[in-house]
């Protein structure tokens, strides 16, 4: 029906956006961050429970398009059991994948995002959860991370 878009909306992505995994708050979370895409109003909150250096649990809540939801869902599945350094390396690979289409090494199921780079308007959707993840790991939970490098001025 929309065959030209099957690269973008792969079956795995459709599955995760219709039935997002780990889609709940995480009462035992040790770190947390918010992601915001002001262009489409997408909001998500990402929760992580770390023990030492290892992510034991990850979950998210929020609203967004199919790509951003699937991305968050697959992220929470993929980071479990990994260290901060491993997850950072994963972020770098995913970032390269969704912006250039190049896959450097193994990213497991996340390879389904290989088609995103051909749709520049959707790169932000795919990367939103990952920005929230790096912010959470850096402990920048107080300020929502934004897909726009804006300069919020209070007041006006």
């Amino acid at each position: 029906m929309f065959d030209e878009l099957s690269d973008l909306y792969q079956q795995v992505i459709l599955d995760h956006c219709k039935k997002p995994r780990n889609f709940h708050e995480l009462p035992g979370a040790t770190v947390f961050a918010q992601g915001h895409n002001p262009l489409c109003g997408d909001q998500l909150k990402l929760y992580l429970r770390l023990e030492g250096d290892v992510i034991q649990e990850a979950s998210f809540v929020g609203s967004g398009c199919c790509i951003s939801k699937a991305s968050a869902s697959l992220l929470t599945d993929s980071v479990k059991g990994h260290t901060r350094a491993e997850v950072q390396a994963m972020f770098d690979k995913v970032h390269e994948l969704v912006t250039t289409g190049k896959l450097n090494g193994d990213v497991g199921k996340l390879a389904v995002f290989a088609g995103v780079y051909r749709f520049p308007a959707r790169v932000k959707c795919a990367i939103l959860a990952w920005h929230a993840l790096t912010a959470a790991l850096k402990g920048e939970a107080a300020q929502p991370v934004s897909t726009e490098t804006d300069n919020p001025q209070p007041g006006a």
């Binding site: 030209e4 878009l5 489409c40 609203s63 398009c65 199919c66 790509i67 308007a121 959707c125």
Partner: peptide
């Protein structure tokens, strides 16, 4: 219900229909 405006606009575009999605 259950279709985000951005997905909707992108799919509609594939069929030649130009819509706006957003705030």
């Amino acid at each position: 219900p259950d279709v985000h405006a951005h997905d909707l606009v992108m799919l509609a575009d594939q069929r030649g229909v130009a819509l706006r999605g957003g705030h």
